[in-house]
Nucleic acid binder design. Structure first.
Lengths: 232, 232
DNA sequence: GGGAATGATTGATAATAGTCAAGCCGATGA
DNA sequence: TCATCGGCTTGACTATTATCAATCATTCCC
Protein backbone atom coordinates (compact mmCIF):
# COMPACT_ATOMS: atom_id res chain seq x y z
CA UNK A 1 0.00 0.00 0.00
CA UNK A 2 1.37 3.46 -0.91
CA UNK A 3 2.36 5.70 2.00
CA UNK A 4 -0.14 8.38 1.04
CA UNK A 5 -3.07 5.99 1.30
CA UNK A 6 -1.64 4.61 4.53
CA UNK A 7 -1.61 8.10 6.05
CA UNK A 8 -5.06 8.95 4.72
CA UNK A 9 -6.58 5.88 6.32
CA UNK A 10 -4.66 6.36 9.53
CA UNK A 11 -6.19 9.82 9.89
CA UNK A 12 -9.74 8.54 9.69
CA UNK A 13 -11.57 8.84 13.02
CA UNK A 14 -12.08 5.11 12.88
CA UNK A 15 -8.35 4.35 12.94
CA UNK A 16 -6.81 7.44 14.52
CA UNK A 17 -6.77 6.29 18.14
CA UNK A 18 -5.49 2.74 17.78
CA UNK A 19 -1.90 1.73 18.47
CA UNK A 20 0.67 1.87 15.66
CA UNK A 21 1.20 -1.80 16.06
CA UNK A 22 -2.45 -2.68 15.63
CA UNK A 23 -2.85 -0.30 12.73
CA UNK A 24 0.13 -1.86 11.00
CA UNK A 25 -1.36 -5.32 11.56
CA UNK A 26 -4.61 -4.11 10.04
CA UNK A 27 -2.86 -2.71 6.99
CA UNK A 28 -0.70 -5.76 6.39
CA UNK A 29 -3.39 -7.59 4.46
CA UNK A 30 -4.98 -4.44 3.05
CA UNK A 31 -4.57 -3.08 -0.44
CA UNK A 32 -5.71 -0.13 -2.50
CA UNK A 33 -7.36 -0.54 -5.84
CA UNK A 34 -8.55 1.78 -8.59
CA UNK A 35 -11.94 1.09 -10.08
CA UNK A 36 -13.58 2.64 -13.13
CA UNK A 37 -17.12 4.03 -12.93
CA UNK A 38 -20.12 1.74 -12.70
CA UNK A 39 -18.24 -1.25 -11.34
CA UNK A 40 -19.94 -3.60 -8.90
CA UNK A 41 -17.87 -3.83 -5.76
CA UNK A 42 -19.99 -6.10 -3.61
CA UNK A 43 -23.34 -7.85 -3.83
CA UNK A 44 -25.85 -8.08 -1.02
CA UNK A 45 -25.87 -11.52 0.53
CA UNK A 46 -22.14 -12.06 -0.01
CA UNK A 47 -20.02 -12.75 3.07
CA UNK A 48 -18.32 -9.58 4.29
CA UNK A 49 -14.72 -10.30 3.30
CA UNK A 50 -13.47 -6.73 3.27
CA UNK A 51 -14.10 -3.48 5.00
CA UNK A 52 -14.07 -0.85 2.25
CA UNK A 53 -12.62 2.63 2.55
CA UNK A 54 -13.44 5.13 -0.18
CA UNK A 55 -10.33 7.25 -0.74
CA UNK A 56 -11.56 9.08 -3.83
CA UNK A 57 -14.55 8.97 -6.14
CA UNK A 58 -17.92 7.86 -4.80
CA UNK A 59 -19.87 4.70 -4.20
CA UNK A 60 -23.56 3.90 -4.42
CA UNK A 61 -25.07 1.57 -1.85
CA UNK A 62 -28.20 -0.02 -3.23
CA UNK A 63 -30.45 -3.00 -2.85
CA UNK A 64 -32.58 -5.20 -5.02
CA UNK A 65 -35.70 -7.24 -4.49
CA UNK A 66 -38.09 -8.89 -6.90
CA UNK A 67 -36.82 -7.01 -9.93
CA UNK A 68 -36.90 -3.62 -8.24
CA UNK A 69 -33.93 -1.73 -6.91
CA UNK A 70 -33.32 1.30 -4.76
CA UNK A 71 -30.37 3.45 -3.78
CA UNK A 72 -29.93 3.66 -0.04
CA UNK A 73 -26.87 5.86 0.39
CA UNK A 74 -23.85 7.44 -1.22
CA UNK A 75 -20.40 7.03 0.27
CA UNK A 76 -17.95 9.85 -0.35
CA UNK A 77 -14.29 10.22 0.65
CA UNK A 78 -13.01 9.59 3.12
CA UNK A 79 -15.35 7.12 4.68
CA UNK A 80 -15.83 3.42 5.16
CA UNK A 81 -18.78 1.26 4.30
CA UNK A 82 -20.18 -2.07 5.36
CA UNK A 83 -18.68 -1.76 8.82
CA UNK A 84 -21.66 -3.39 10.53
CA UNK A 85 -21.48 -6.48 8.35
CA UNK A 86 -17.75 -6.70 8.97
CA UNK A 87 -17.89 -6.58 12.74
CA UNK A 88 -20.86 -8.95 12.89
CA UNK A 89 -19.30 -11.31 10.35
CA UNK A 90 -22.67 -11.27 8.63
CA UNK A 91 -23.56 -11.02 4.93
CA UNK A 92 -23.80 -7.61 3.28
CA UNK A 93 -27.29 -6.17 3.34
CA UNK A 94 -26.54 -3.79 0.49
CA UNK A 95 -24.73 -3.97 -2.80
CA UNK A 96 -22.18 -1.36 -3.78
CA UNK A 97 -20.96 0.03 -7.07
CA UNK A 98 -18.72 2.89 -8.04
CA UNK A 99 -20.50 5.98 -9.32
CA UNK A 100 -17.32 7.35 -10.86
CA UNK A 101 -13.66 6.40 -11.09
CA UNK A 102 -12.76 5.57 -7.49
CA UNK A 103 -9.84 4.58 -5.34
CA UNK A 104 -10.80 2.16 -2.64
CA UNK A 105 -8.88 0.47 0.14
CA UNK A 106 -9.87 -3.06 1.06
CA UNK A 107 -9.14 -4.31 4.57
CA UNK A 108 -9.74 -7.99 5.28
CA UNK A 109 -12.74 -8.26 7.60
CA UNK A 110 -11.16 -10.96 9.71
CA UNK A 111 -8.27 -8.63 10.51
CA UNK A 112 -10.73 -5.90 11.48
CA UNK A 113 -12.50 -8.30 13.84
CA UNK A 114 -9.22 -9.59 15.27
CA UNK A 115 -7.90 -6.11 16.05
CA UNK A 116 -11.30 -5.06 17.29
CA UNK A 117 -11.12 -7.87 19.85
CA UNK A 118 -7.85 -6.63 21.34
CA UNK A 119 -7.88 -2.87 20.84
CA UNK A 120 -10.35 -1.02 23.05
CA UNK A 121 -9.72 2.31 21.35
CA UNK A 122 -10.54 0.82 18.02
CA UNK A 123 -13.69 -0.74 19.47
CA UNK A 124 -14.75 2.66 20.79
CA UNK A 125 -14.12 4.27 17.41
CA UNK A 126 -16.22 1.59 15.77
CA UNK A 127 -19.01 2.45 18.19
CA UNK A 128 -18.91 6.10 17.19
CA UNK A 129 -18.99 5.23 13.54
CA UNK A 130 -21.83 2.72 13.93
CA UNK A 131 -23.87 5.04 16.11
CA UNK A 132 -23.50 7.71 13.45
CA UNK A 133 -24.56 5.30 10.71
CA UNK A 134 -27.51 4.10 12.74
CA UNK A 135 -28.75 7.60 13.37
CA UNK A 136 -28.36 8.47 9.71
CA UNK A 137 -30.58 5.58 8.67
CA UNK A 138 -33.16 6.42 11.33
CA UNK A 139 -33.33 9.97 10.00
CA UNK A 140 -33.73 8.65 6.50
CA UNK A 141 -36.50 6.35 7.72
CA UNK A 142 -38.31 9.29 9.27
CA UNK A 143 -37.89 11.28 6.06
CA UNK A 144 -39.46 8.45 4.09
CA UNK A 145 -42.33 7.69 6.42
CA UNK A 146 -43.33 11.17 7.50
CA UNK A 147 -43.00 13.12 4.26
CA UNK A 148 -44.49 13.07 0.78
CA UNK A 149 -42.10 12.91 -2.14
CA UNK A 150 -42.48 16.65 -2.75
CA UNK A 151 -41.56 17.37 0.85
CA UNK A 152 -38.60 15.02 0.67
CA UNK A 153 -37.35 16.78 -2.42
CA UNK A 154 -37.82 20.22 -0.88
CA UNK A 155 -35.78 19.21 2.13
CA UNK A 156 -33.17 17.55 -0.03
CA UNK A 157 -32.78 20.82 -1.90
CA UNK A 158 -32.27 22.65 1.38
CA UNK A 159 -29.74 20.09 2.61
CA UNK A 160 -27.76 20.34 -0.62
CA UNK A 161 -27.87 24.09 -0.39
CA UNK A 162 -26.35 23.90 3.07
CA UNK A 163 -23.65 21.50 1.86
CA UNK A 164 -22.85 23.96 -0.92
CA UNK A 165 -22.38 26.75 1.59
CA UNK A 166 -25.78 28.40 1.93
CA UNK A 167 -25.60 29.84 -1.58
CA UNK A 168 -28.78 30.50 -3.52
CA UNK A 169 -27.66 28.54 -6.54
CA UNK A 170 -25.83 25.23 -6.66
CA UNK A 171 -25.44 22.04 -8.66
CA UNK A 172 -26.90 18.63 -8.03
CA UNK A 173 -24.07 16.24 -7.44
CA UNK A 174 -25.66 13.10 -8.78
CA UNK A 175 -27.76 11.92 -11.67
CA UNK A 176 -31.43 12.75 -11.35
CA UNK A 177 -32.40 9.13 -11.87
CA UNK A 178 -30.28 8.20 -8.88
CA UNK A 179 -31.56 11.10 -6.84
CA UNK A 180 -35.07 9.86 -7.58
CA UNK A 181 -34.14 6.44 -6.28
CA UNK A 182 -32.52 7.85 -3.16
CA UNK A 183 -35.63 9.91 -2.48
CA UNK A 184 -37.86 6.91 -3.05
CA UNK A 185 -39.56 7.90 -6.27
CA UNK A 186 -39.38 7.37 -10.01
CA UNK A 187 -37.37 9.63 -12.34
CA UNK A 188 -40.62 10.76 -13.97
CA UNK A 189 -41.99 11.81 -10.65
CA UNK A 190 -38.82 13.63 -9.72
CA UNK A 191 -39.23 15.73 -12.86
CA UNK A 192 -42.75 16.59 -11.86
CA UNK A 193 -41.74 17.18 -8.26
CA UNK A 194 -39.18 19.77 -9.35
CA UNK A 195 -41.98 21.53 -11.20
CA UNK A 196 -44.07 21.24 -8.08
CA UNK A 197 -41.45 23.28 -6.24
CA UNK A 198 -41.65 26.20 -8.66
CA UNK A 199 -44.45 27.86 -6.62
CA UNK A 200 -42.08 27.76 -3.65
CA UNK A 201 -39.36 29.57 -5.53
CA UNK A 202 -37.17 26.72 -6.76
CA UNK A 203 -35.85 26.79 -10.29
CA UNK A 204 -34.04 23.92 -11.96
CA UNK A 205 -32.13 24.04 -15.23
CA UNK A 206 -30.24 20.84 -15.88
CA UNK A 207 -28.25 20.14 -12.73
CA UNK A 208 -28.33 23.75 -11.55
CA UNK A 209 -30.79 24.48 -8.75
CA UNK A 210 -31.65 28.06 -7.87
CA UNK A 211 -33.56 29.05 -4.79
CA UNK A 212 -35.41 32.29 -5.54
CA UNK A 213 -37.39 32.46 -2.32
CA UNK A 214 -35.62 30.92 0.62
CA UNK A 215 -38.36 31.75 3.10
CA UNK A 216 -41.16 30.32 0.99
CA UNK A 217 -39.23 27.09 0.40
CA UNK A 218 -38.46 26.69 4.09
CA UNK A 219 -42.05 27.36 5.05
CA UNK A 220 -43.07 24.53 2.77
CA UNK A 221 -40.22 22.12 3.54
CA UNK A 222 -40.28 22.58 7.31
CA UNK A 223 -36.76 21.21 7.74
CA UNK A 224 -36.11 19.54 11.07
CA UNK A 225 -32.68 18.98 12.61
CA UNK A 226 -33.79 15.56 13.84
CA UNK A 227 -34.30 14.52 10.22
CA UNK A 228 -32.15 16.80 8.13
CA UNK A 229 -29.04 17.72 10.10
CA UNK A 230 -26.19 15.37 9.41
CA UNK A 231 -24.32 16.52 12.50
CA UNK A 232 -27.07 15.85 15.07
CA UNK B 1 -32.49 -1.55 42.59
CA UNK B 2 -33.93 -4.97 43.45
CA UNK B 3 -31.59 -7.94 43.08
CA UNK B 4 -33.81 -9.60 40.49
CA UNK B 5 -33.62 -6.62 38.15
CA UNK B 6 -29.90 -6.35 38.81
CA UNK B 7 -29.41 -9.96 37.68
CA UNK B 8 -31.69 -9.56 34.68
CA UNK B 9 -29.74 -6.61 33.42
CA UNK B 10 -26.42 -8.22 34.15
CA UNK B 11 -27.37 -11.13 31.93
CA UNK B 12 -28.05 -8.94 28.92
CA UNK B 13 -25.46 -9.40 26.17
CA UNK B 14 -24.71 -5.73 26.49
CA UNK B 15 -23.56 -6.04 30.11
CA UNK B 16 -22.57 -9.69 30.47
CA UNK B 17 -18.85 -9.35 29.67
CA UNK B 18 -17.95 -6.28 31.69
CA UNK B 19 -16.17 -6.43 35.04
CA UNK B 20 -18.22 -6.69 38.24
CA UNK B 21 -16.75 -3.44 39.35
CA UNK B 22 -17.77 -1.55 36.23
CA UNK B 23 -21.20 -3.09 36.25
CA UNK B 24 -21.68 -2.08 39.86
CA UNK B 25 -20.60 1.45 38.99
CA UNK B 26 -23.09 1.52 36.15
CA UNK B 27 -25.91 0.34 38.42
CA UNK B 28 -25.13 2.76 41.21
CA UNK B 29 -27.07 5.61 39.64
CA UNK B 30 -29.61 3.36 37.94
CA UNK B 31 -33.14 2.68 39.07
CA UNK B 32 -36.12 0.63 38.04
CA UNK B 33 -39.53 2.15 37.56
CA UNK B 34 -43.01 0.85 36.80
CA UNK B 35 -45.00 2.70 34.20
CA UNK B 36 -48.65 2.31 33.25
CA UNK B 37 -49.68 1.91 29.62
CA UNK B 38 -49.56 4.83 27.19
CA UNK B 39 -47.04 6.85 29.14
CA UNK B 40 -44.55 9.01 27.31
CA UNK B 41 -41.05 8.03 28.37
CA UNK B 42 -38.95 10.29 26.20
CA UNK B 43 -39.48 12.88 23.50
CA UNK B 44 -37.39 13.21 20.38
CA UNK B 45 -35.03 16.11 20.61
CA UNK B 46 -34.51 15.75 24.34
CA UNK B 47 -30.95 15.20 25.58
CA UNK B 48 -30.25 11.53 26.17
CA UNK B 49 -30.13 11.45 29.94
CA UNK B 50 -30.82 7.76 30.42
CA UNK B 51 -30.22 4.51 28.67
CA UNK B 52 -33.49 2.58 28.97
CA UNK B 53 -33.80 -1.15 29.55
CA UNK B 54 -37.22 -2.72 29.07
CA UNK B 55 -37.58 -5.44 31.72
CA UNK B 56 -41.24 -6.20 31.12
CA UNK B 57 -44.08 -4.83 29.03
CA UNK B 58 -43.33 -3.17 25.70
CA UNK B 59 -42.38 0.20 24.33
CA UNK B 60 -43.25 1.98 21.11
CA UNK B 61 -40.57 4.05 19.41
CA UNK B 62 -42.17 6.68 17.22
CA UNK B 63 -41.55 10.00 15.60
CA UNK B 64 -43.51 13.08 14.68
CA UNK B 65 -43.22 15.74 12.03
CA UNK B 66 -45.58 18.40 10.82
CA UNK B 67 -48.61 16.92 12.54
CA UNK B 68 -47.97 13.39 11.29
CA UNK B 69 -46.50 10.54 13.27
CA UNK B 70 -45.16 7.10 12.61
CA UNK B 71 -44.12 4.09 14.65
CA UNK B 72 -40.58 3.02 13.93
CA UNK B 73 -40.06 0.05 16.20
CA UNK B 74 -41.28 -1.92 19.18
CA UNK B 75 -38.96 -2.77 22.06
CA UNK B 76 -39.72 -5.94 23.97
CA UNK B 77 -38.02 -7.44 27.03
CA UNK B 78 -35.26 -7.71 27.62
CA UNK B 79 -33.69 -5.07 25.46
CA UNK B 80 -32.33 -1.56 25.62
CA UNK B 81 -33.25 1.44 23.55
CA UNK B 82 -31.69 4.74 22.57
CA UNK B 83 -28.20 3.32 22.90
CA UNK B 84 -26.88 5.31 19.95
CA UNK B 85 -28.04 8.62 21.38
CA UNK B 86 -26.53 7.69 24.73
CA UNK B 87 -23.06 6.85 23.47
CA UNK B 88 -22.97 9.85 21.13
CA UNK B 89 -24.36 12.16 23.80
CA UNK B 90 -26.78 13.39 21.16
CA UNK B 91 -30.50 14.15 21.36
CA UNK B 92 -33.02 11.34 20.94
CA UNK B 93 -34.18 10.89 17.36
CA UNK B 94 -37.30 9.03 18.43
CA UNK B 95 -39.90 9.39 21.11
CA UNK B 96 -40.90 6.45 23.27
CA UNK B 97 -44.07 5.49 25.11
CA UNK B 98 -45.22 2.40 26.90
CA UNK B 99 -47.66 0.21 25.00
CA UNK B 100 -48.70 -1.60 28.16
CA UNK B 101 -47.78 -1.63 31.83
CA UNK B 102 -44.00 -1.83 31.77
CA UNK B 103 -41.04 -2.11 34.08
CA UNK B 104 -38.09 -0.13 32.86
CA UNK B 105 -34.58 0.38 34.18
CA UNK B 106 -33.01 3.77 33.70
CA UNK B 107 -29.24 4.04 33.59
CA UNK B 108 -27.71 7.51 33.55
CA UNK B 109 -26.19 8.12 30.12
CA UNK B 110 -23.12 9.80 31.52
CA UNK B 111 -22.33 6.67 33.52
CA UNK B 112 -22.73 4.56 30.39
CA UNK B 113 -20.32 6.81 28.53
CA UNK B 114 -17.85 6.85 31.42
CA UNK B 115 -17.75 3.06 31.73
CA UNK B 116 -17.67 2.73 27.97
CA UNK B 117 -14.48 4.80 27.95
CA UNK B 118 -12.66 2.46 30.31
CA UNK B 119 -14.14 -0.98 29.67
CA UNK B 120 -13.15 -2.51 26.35
CA UNK B 121 -15.48 -5.46 26.77
CA UNK B 122 -18.40 -3.16 27.28
CA UNK B 123 -17.36 -1.15 24.22
CA UNK B 124 -17.31 -4.33 22.17
CA UNK B 125 -20.74 -5.33 23.43
CA UNK B 126 -22.05 -1.90 22.47
CA UNK B 127 -20.67 -2.46 18.98
CA UNK B 128 -22.55 -5.72 18.64
CA UNK B 129 -25.77 -4.12 19.81
CA UNK B 130 -25.40 -1.10 17.55
CA UNK B 131 -24.45 -3.17 14.53
CA UNK B 132 -27.56 -5.25 15.13
CA UNK B 133 -29.74 -2.14 15.42
CA UNK B 134 -28.20 -0.63 12.33
CA UNK B 135 -28.85 -3.72 10.28
CA UNK B 136 -32.41 -3.91 11.54
CA UNK B 137 -33.13 -0.37 10.34
CA UNK B 138 -31.48 -1.01 6.99
CA UNK B 139 -33.71 -4.05 6.50
CA UNK B 140 -36.73 -2.00 7.42
CA UNK B 141 -35.64 0.66 4.95
CA UNK B 142 -35.41 -1.93 2.20
CA UNK B 143 -38.82 -3.27 3.14
CA UNK B 144 -40.29 0.21 2.81
CA UNK B 145 -38.59 1.23 -0.40
CA UNK B 146 -38.75 -2.00 -2.34
CA UNK B 147 -42.22 -3.29 -1.47
CA UNK B 148 -45.80 -2.15 -1.83
CA UNK B 149 -47.92 -2.03 1.29
CA UNK B 150 -49.59 -5.33 0.38
CA UNK B 151 -46.20 -7.00 0.03
CA UNK B 152 -45.03 -5.53 3.31
CA UNK B 153 -48.10 -6.89 5.05
CA UNK B 154 -47.70 -10.31 3.47
CA UNK B 155 -44.12 -10.50 4.68
CA UNK B 156 -45.09 -9.21 8.09
CA UNK B 157 -47.62 -12.02 8.37
CA UNK B 158 -44.92 -14.53 7.49
CA UNK B 159 -42.49 -13.06 10.01
CA UNK B 160 -45.10 -13.14 12.76
CA UNK B 161 -45.92 -16.70 11.87
CA UNK B 162 -42.27 -17.63 12.28
CA UNK B 163 -42.12 -15.84 15.64
CA UNK B 164 -45.19 -17.80 16.72
CA UNK B 165 -43.49 -21.07 15.88
CA UNK B 166 -44.42 -21.79 12.27
CA UNK B 167 -48.05 -22.46 13.17
CA UNK B 168 -50.79 -21.84 10.65
CA UNK B 169 -52.82 -19.68 13.00
CA UNK B 170 -51.61 -17.02 15.40
CA UNK B 171 -52.52 -13.71 16.98
CA UNK B 172 -51.37 -10.23 16.12
CA UNK B 173 -49.49 -8.86 19.05
CA UNK B 174 -50.29 -5.21 18.59
CA UNK B 175 -53.16 -2.95 17.71
CA UNK B 176 -53.95 -2.82 14.03
CA UNK B 177 -53.66 0.96 13.98
CA UNK B 178 -50.14 0.65 15.26
CA UNK B 179 -49.33 -2.17 12.89
CA UNK B 180 -50.51 0.08 10.09
CA UNK B 181 -48.15 2.80 11.25
CA UNK B 182 -45.23 0.38 11.57
CA UNK B 183 -45.88 -0.87 8.04
CA UNK B 184 -46.12 2.67 6.72
CA UNK B 185 -49.80 2.83 5.88
CA UNK B 186 -53.11 4.09 7.26
CA UNK B 187 -55.42 1.90 9.37
CA UNK B 188 -58.01 2.05 6.59
CA UNK B 189 -55.51 0.71 4.12
CA UNK B 190 -54.42 -2.04 6.46
CA UNK B 191 -58.01 -3.25 6.59
CA UNK B 192 -58.13 -3.32 2.82
CA UNK B 193 -54.71 -4.90 2.58
CA UNK B 194 -55.83 -7.80 4.79
CA UNK B 195 -58.69 -8.32 2.36
CA UNK B 196 -56.20 -8.14 -0.45
CA UNK B 197 -54.40 -11.13 1.06
CA UNK B 198 -57.50 -13.33 1.00
CA UNK B 199 -56.70 -14.56 -2.54
CA UNK B 200 -53.33 -15.73 -1.18
CA UNK B 201 -54.93 -17.75 1.57
CA UNK B 202 -54.80 -15.40 4.53
CA UNK B 203 -57.80 -15.07 6.79
CA UNK B 204 -58.16 -12.51 9.57
CA UNK B 205 -60.78 -12.46 12.30
CA UNK B 206 -60.09 -9.81 14.90
CA UNK B 207 -56.50 -10.34 15.94
CA UNK B 208 -56.36 -13.95 14.78
CA UNK B 209 -54.54 -14.56 11.52
CA UNK B 210 -54.90 -17.89 9.75
CA UNK B 211 -52.74 -18.96 6.84
CA UNK B 212 -54.74 -21.35 4.70
CA UNK B 213 -52.26 -21.65 1.87
CA UNK B 214 -48.66 -21.28 2.96
CA UNK B 215 -47.23 -21.85 -0.52
CA UNK B 216 -49.46 -19.33 -2.20
CA UNK B 217 -48.69 -16.67 0.41
CA UNK B 218 -44.96 -17.25 0.12
CA UNK B 219 -45.08 -17.13 -3.65
CA UNK B 220 -46.71 -13.73 -3.37
CA UNK B 221 -44.64 -12.37 -0.46
CA UNK B 222 -41.26 -13.55 -1.73
CA UNK B 223 -39.66 -13.29 1.71
CA UNK B 224 -35.94 -12.57 1.66
CA UNK B 225 -33.53 -13.26 4.51
CA UNK B 226 -31.73 -9.98 3.81
CA UNK B 227 -34.95 -8.14 4.62
CA UNK B 228 -37.01 -10.44 6.79
CA UNK B 229 -34.68 -12.54 8.92
CA UNK B 230 -34.01 -10.95 12.27
CA UNK B 231 -30.99 -13.17 12.84
CA UNK B 232 -29.08 -12.30 9.66
C1' DG C 1 -77.44 -3.49 31.46
C1' DG C 2 -76.74 1.04 29.10
C1' DG C 3 -74.09 4.48 27.36
C1' DA C 4 -69.52 6.33 26.07
C1' DA C 5 -65.22 5.87 24.15
C1' DT C 6 -62.10 3.72 21.20
C1' DG C 7 -60.69 1.04 17.51
C1' DA C 8 -61.95 -1.39 13.14
C1' DT C 9 -64.20 -1.46 8.87
C1' DT C 10 -66.46 0.20 4.69
C1' DG C 11 -67.60 3.25 0.89
C1' DA C 12 -66.85 7.32 -1.79
C1' DT C 13 -63.63 10.39 -3.29
C1' DA C 14 -59.26 12.76 -3.80
C1' DA C 15 -54.40 12.90 -3.77
C1' DT C 16 -50.24 10.79 -4.81
C1' DA C 17 -47.23 7.94 -7.26
C1' DG C 18 -46.09 4.55 -10.90
C1' DT C 19 -46.18 2.89 -15.84
C1' DC C 20 -45.82 3.25 -20.60
C1' DA C 21 -44.84 5.60 -24.72
C1' DA C 22 -43.12 9.31 -27.13
C1' DG C 23 -40.28 13.14 -27.81
C1' DC C 24 -36.45 16.21 -26.28
C1' DC C 25 -31.85 17.49 -25.32
C1' DG C 26 -27.09 17.44 -24.63
C1' DA C 27 -22.87 14.85 -24.64
C1' DT C 28 -20.08 11.87 -27.29
C1' DG C 29 -17.75 10.13 -31.13
C1' DA C 30 -17.20 8.91 -36.03
C1' DT D 1 -21.30 18.05 -39.08
C1' DC D 2 -24.27 14.59 -38.14
C1' DA D 3 -25.82 10.45 -35.91
C1' DT D 4 -26.38 8.05 -31.82
C1' DC D 5 -27.02 7.16 -27.18
C1' DG D 6 -28.54 7.83 -22.63
C1' DG D 7 -30.79 10.39 -19.60
C1' DC D 8 -34.47 13.72 -18.94
C1' DT D 9 -39.08 15.38 -19.67
C1' DT D 10 -43.89 15.25 -20.90
C1' DG D 11 -48.51 13.43 -21.51
C1' DA D 12 -51.96 10.05 -20.88
C1' DC D 13 -53.33 6.61 -18.20
C1' DT D 14 -53.41 3.35 -14.31
C1' DA D 15 -52.48 1.87 -9.73
C1' DT D 16 -51.89 2.76 -5.17
C1' DT D 17 -52.63 5.12 -1.11
C1' DA D 18 -54.75 8.69 1.75
C1' DT D 19 -58.71 11.23 3.43
C1' DC D 20 -63.22 11.90 5.04
C1' DA D 21 -67.45 10.32 6.74
C1' DA D 22 -70.31 6.94 8.38
C1' DT D 23 -71.11 2.67 10.55
C1' DC D 24 -70.02 -1.33 13.23
C1' DA D 25 -67.84 -3.85 17.07
C1' DT D 26 -65.67 -4.01 21.63
C1' DT D 27 -64.38 -2.70 25.74
C1' DC D 28 -64.88 -0.27 29.79
C1' DC D 29 -67.04 2.13 33.30
C1' DC D 30 -70.90 3.72 35.90
Amino acid sequence: MPDSAFAEIRNLDLFAQMTDENFAALMRGAYVQNFPAQIDLISEGDPSDFLHVVLSGSVDLFSTWNGRDTSLATVRPIATFILAATVKDAPYLMSARTLEKSRIALIPSQDVRAIFDVDGNFARAVVTELAQSYRTVVKSQKDLKLRTSLERLANYVLRQQKRSGEVSSFFLECEKRRLASVLGMTPENLSRAFKGLVPYGVQVEGTRVTILDQGELERFAKPNPLIDDTSV
